[in-house]
C-alpha cells in the first residue's frame, strides 16, 4: 500500500481523535456547568422546602393558637352576653337593648337596674377600640357599677344631695379609678343616667358619648351636654343634665357603632337615619323598634361583621310609680 495513503489515513484519524477529544472536553465542561447549576437549583429547592416546612409548622402553631383563642373568646362572649340585663316591661317603665359585638367580645356594654323604689338607673359605655382589651375594660366598668348596696351607684345616690350630683359623682369615681397616665388603660365614653319614676325627671351625665334622644309628644329631641371621655383627664369636670319626662315618652341611647356603620360605598348609617327610624316606629313596642333598627343596620352594613360594636338602648316611661306596684317592679327588675 502507498505510504502516502497510510500517512494521510493516520493524519485523518489523528485529527479526528483530536477533534473528538476537544469535543469531549467541551461537553465535559458543559456537563460540569450543568451539574453546578443543578447543584445550585437543588440547594435553592432545599431552602425553599425548608422555608415551606417552617411556614407550615408556623401555620400549624398559629391555627392551634387561633383555635384556643377562638374557643376562649367564644366563652368570653357568652359570659359577656350573660352580663347584659334581660328586657324589663313593667307598668311604670320598660327597657330593651340591642347589642352586637364587632368581634366575639365587645368594648360596648349597657345595664339598667333599680337603685331605689323609684329610681331606675341605666348606663351605656363604649371603650375605645373593640376586641379583647376593650372588653376587659368593659368588664371592669360593669363590675364597679353593679347595683350592690355598697357599690358606687348606690353610695352616691344616698350620699349626694340630688340626682345631678349623684350621676356626676359616679362618673367621677369611675374616672378616678381608670385615669392613670402611666399605664395603658383604655378610656371610654359613657352615658350614665337616672330616671325618677315618681317625679318624672331624667338626670344624666354624658362623658363623651353620643347625646340621648328623647321622643316626647311625637318629636325627637337630642339632649346632650358633651363632656370628656372617662379616663382621659385627671379632672374632666363632668356635668349633669336634667329634663322632665312625661308618661309615654321614650329615651334612646346608642353607641357610635350604629351611626358610623358604613355601607359598600363607605357611607355612614348616620344619626339622622337612626333618629328617623325610631320616630317612624315610635308607636311600636321598644323591642319591635329595636328589631327594625337591627334589620336596617344589617341591610346597610357592608360586610358580614360590623366594623365597630353596636349598642342601642330604649327606655319607655309609662307612668309614675306608686308604692302598691313597687313589689312587682322590684321583682322584675333586680
Amino acid at each position: 500500500m502507498d505510504a502516502d495513503v497510510l500517512n494521510r489515513a493516520y493524519e485523518r484519524e489523528k485529527a479526528r481523535r483530536k477533534k473528538a477529544e476537544a469535543l469531549l472536553e467541551e461537553k465535559s465542561r458543559e456537563l460540569y456547568l450543568s451539574y453546578e447549576k443543578l447543584q445550585e437549583s437543588h440547594e435553592q429547592l432545599q431552602q425553599t422546602l425548608d422555608e415551606h416546612n417552617r411556614q407550615t409548622e408556623e401555620m400549624t402553631r398559629l391555627v392551634t393558637t387561633y383555635t384556643t383563642v377562638k374557643d376562649d373568646l367564644e366563652i368570653a362572649a357568652s359570659l359577656q352576653a350573660d352580663l347584659l340585663p334581660d328586657p324589663v316591661d313593667t307598668t311604670t317603665h320598660a327597657a330593651h337593648g340591642y347589642f352586637q359585638p364587632a368581634q366575639f367580645i365587645a368594648g360596648d356594654a349597657y345595664d339598667y337596674f333599680m337603685l331605689s323604689e323609684s329610681v331606675f338607673a341605666f348606663y351605656i359605655i363604649d371603650v375605645e377600640g373593640h376586641g379583647a382589651a376593650s372588653a376587659m375594660t368593659s368588664f371592669a366598668v360593669h363590675s364597679q357599677l353593679t347595683p350592690k348596696l355598697d357599690g358606687i351607684c348606690s353610695r352616691n345616690l344616698h350620699t349626694c344631695n340630688n340626682h345631678a350630683d349623684a350621676v356626676i359623682a359616679t362618673v367621677n369615681d369611675l374616672n378616678n379609678n381608670f385615669y392613670n397616665p402611666d399605664s395603658k388603660n383604655k378610656y371610654f365614653t359613657m352615658l350614665y343616667g337616672m330616671l325618677d319614676l315618681q317625679a318624672g325627671k331624667l338626670t344624666w351625665c354624658q362623658a363623651g358619648h353620643p347625646a340621648l334622644t328623647l321622643y316626647s309628644e311625637g318629636k325627637p329631641i337630642e339632649l346632650g351636654c358633651g363632656g370628656f371621655p372617662v379616663g382621659i383627664l385627671e379632672e374632666p369636670g363632668f356635668e349633669a343634665a336634667e329634663c322632665d319626662i312625661k308618661p309615654g315618652d321614650r329615651v334612646a341611647i346608642y353607641s357610635d357603632g350604629i351611626t358610623e356603620c358604613y355601607n359598600e360605598n363607605k357611607g355612614f348609617f348616620g344619626k339622622d337615619r337612626l333618629i328617623d327610624i325610631l320616630l317612624q316606629n315610635r308607636s311600636s313596642e321598644a323591642y319591635q323598634s329595636i328589631a327594625t333598627v337591627r334589620d336596617e343596620l344589617l341591610a346597610w352594613n357592608a360586610g358580614d361583621e360590623f366594623n365597630d360594636d353596636v349598642t342601642l338602648l330604649l327606655i319607655d316611661y309609662k307612668k309614675p310609680v306608686d308604692q302598691a306596684e313597687w313589689n312587682s317592679v322590684a321583682t322584675l327588675s333586680l
Binding site: R12, A15, R16, K19, A20, L23
Partner: peptide
C-alpha cells in the same frame, strides 16, 4: 473533504 467526522456532530 477532510474526512474527520465525529459521530455525534
Amino acid at each position: 473533504l477532510s474526512g474527520n467526522y465525529i459521530a455525534s456532530e
